[in-house]
Design a protein around this nucleic acid. Structure first.
Length: 561
RNA sequence: GGCCCCGUCGUCCAGCGGUCCAGGACUCCGCCCUUUCAAGGCGGCAACGCCGGUUCGAACCCGGUCGGGGCUACCA
């Protein structure tokens, strides 16, 4: 049981590397001897810009953001585009836009207003493609210090070796170790002279084990003999993820690495790299060499890890297009509020100590603690998200909701029902619509189902509604009576209601029987916002015209006799 | 195959040896309210994967088993 001085509120922070015979030095300080307690809280979100940002990534970003805000720390947004073949600017732009939309603001990283250009923060650049020199310098220094070895094997050779090893040809599992992979000095000299390309592998310890003390998983032990020596520098000279990611985490003073569980098994080698980077000031020298900002003296190597459980679909399978909207932008166009996403996603793996679920940012930030995160995979449930969203919409200030609704009516998302730009009267109608629809919407895009009768002169009578309502006795009479009383009533909700309330008695009927035909005639459907308010929102001429237009239809559907 | 992680209602969580014939939220169902649809109120269905062990006592501890997932790339 590792017991070091490295304790921090919220969890044990001892990442012990034991023993370390294969990494050479014995006079170095043990990693757990370095006090890390007063290092400032700095966390990062560092997606690889290929594809779109999905809810799993956003939840990871959210947890990092919450951790930073809770501790008054710094949230860094870094772009990991070391794989030139996969990274695209389109994806990068989209991810920056998505994270901004969700409302997770970062303190250092690309400028959302100028995604491909400006950056903010003193420890950049924040795009790895702009730090290649650093990785090269670090790679060279690591090699000079004897931590790396050259591998001249081609991809085909490696593949063949793996295939046979896996086939159980007596070689055991396919673990790459220096003991079996390091070329002899002669070979190295010869291959180098021939100009054969070589990748650089990190020589990990051949024996012993590492204990990763994870804030969510507890202590996880790995035996070094099971861990392959990772390629740090590709044969074309470019850095791989383990190198670039580790270098940047140390160079940017990241204190807690909080990421997906899929990276848990890769943590041992990163611990080793962090250690090598910090030791003897190797990284500091490289930083200085390439002219990048020096590290803050208060920073240590990342001292805490938190590996978050995966987010899966309702079928427990990996999140995919089949699970609805994968790209975060899709949530925007469907009318989800960013605050809903933040609230819901926070609860996917974590819960407030007192059990409350509807939480605003302040409450989230105040209560969030990574070590309280659960360990099992969580299914993303759109129904619950939707329910949360409906509640939030109801809490919105009407004026704000009115503004939020416009993009769903001006053609930004969905059909265009407003002029460009919207006219004052149109905006007034939208504003008038808000009280009628606010409590019956779960998503903003649902306004598209309510708005047409109020924004277009003509109304199309819904076939099913006509068949259901106009075929009942009394429909024609109700419409005729409504037409008569509405012709000269005061155009206020109260007067309209008072007038229509007299109809049931006159027609010896129930109000429901009278109201439905009128509703269909005026709104086109048997399902609509409240009748009196709907009528009032429309102009008298429009209402009367619609009643007139509906009359022949109602007559045509009227029952015999 | 090897290494690692995970396993409470359909779903997300609570539970951290007795107060649990397991609690909240979403979904679903019923009732109330009601001019439709909603909203709101009330009520209901529904789970500790399995087998052993420890213990006076286990959802909680231990072992095994089964099931799910991750990694096993010169992707990240």
């Amino acid at each position: 049981m590792p017991e070091g001085p490295n304790r921090q509120a919220g969890g044990t922070v001892t990442n012990e590397v034991v023993p370390a015979p294969a990494y050479h030095r014995t006079d170095r300080p043990r990693p757990d001897e370095a006090p890390v307690t007063d290092a400032p809280v700095r966390v990062r979100f560092c997606p690889a810009p290929s594809g779109v940002l999905h809810v799993g990534s956003v939840r990871a970003a959210l947890y990092n953001w919450l951790h930073a805000r809770h501790h008054g720390g710094t949230f860094v947004f870094r772009i990991e585009d070391t794989d030139a073949a996969r990274a695209t600017e389109e994806s990068m732009r989209s991810m920056i836009e998505a994270l901004s939309w969700v409302g997770l603001d970062w303190d250092e990283g690309p400028d959302p207003a100028d995604p491909l250009g400006a950056e903010r923060g003193d420890h950049g650049p924040y795009r790895q493609s702009s730090r290649l020199e650093l990785y090269t310098a670090v790679g060279r220094r690591l090699e000079e210090a004897g931590h790396l070895y050259r591998d001249f094997r081609t991809a085909e050779e490696l593949e063949a070796w793996r295939a046979s090893a896996r086939a159980g040809g007596g070689d055991g599992p396919p673990v790459v170790k220096a003991s079996g992979f390091r070329h002899s000095d002669d070979e190295v000299a010869r291959f180098t002279a021939e100009g054969r390309p070589a990748s650089l592998r990190l020589a990990t310890p051949e024996t012993g084990h590492v204990v990763v003390d994870d804030l969510v998983r507890g202590e996880v032990r790995f035996d070094w003999e099971q861990i392959s020596d990772p390629v740090l520098v590709r044969s074309d000279g470019s850095a791989t993820y383990p190198l670039a990611n580790s270098v940047d985490d140390v160079a940017q003073g990241i204190s807690l690495i909080c990421r997906g569980e899929d990276l848990l098994s890769v943590t041992p080698r990163q611990l080793l790299i962090h250690d090598l980077l910090v030791r003897d000031g190797l990284l500091d020298a490289a930083l200085d060499e390439v002219g990048l900002p020096a590290r803050d003296p208060a920073w240590g190597a990342p001292s805490s890890f938190a590996h978050l459980p995966m987010v899966v679909g309702m079928d427990r399978k990996k999140l995919s297009k089949r699970h609805g909207s994968v790209a975060i932008q899709e949530f925007a166009r469907q009318g989800f509020l960013p605050a809903t996403l933040r609230n819901y996603l926070a609860l996917l793996g974590w819960s407030h100590p007192d059990g409350r679920e509807r939480l605003n940012d302040d409450e989230l930030i105040a209560a969030f603690d990574v070590s309280g995160v659960g360990r099992s995979a969580a299914a993303f449930d759109v129904d619950k998200l939707t329910a949360f969203n409906g509640e939030r919409i109801r809490e919105l200030d009407p004026a704000e909701l009115s503004t939020l609704l416009v993009p769903f009516l001006d053609g930004t998302y969905g059909d265009r029902l407003l002029d460009d730009p919207p006219t004052e009267p149109q905006l007034a109608v939208v504003g008038g619509l808000v009280p009628l629809v606010q409590e019956r919407m779960q998503r903003l895009d649902e306004v598209q189902g309510y708005a047409p009768p109020f924004l277009t002169a003509e109304v199309a009578l819904d076939e099913a509604s006509v068949a259901k309502v106009f075929t009942k006795p009394g429909a024609v009479a109700a419409i005729e009576a409504a037409r008569r009383v509405l012709a000269d009533v005061d155009w206020t909700v109260e007067a309209i209601e008072a007038a229509l309330r007299t109809l049931p008695e006159e027609l010896s009927s129930g109000f429901g029987k009278v109201a439905q035909p009128i509703r269909v005639a005026v709104t086109g459907s048997s399902v609509s916002p409240p009748l009196f308010e709907s009528i009032e929102l429309l102009d008298r001429e429009v209402v009367l015209a619609r009643l007139d237009a509906a009359l022949p239809v109602a007559r045509a559907h009227a029952p015999e006799g």
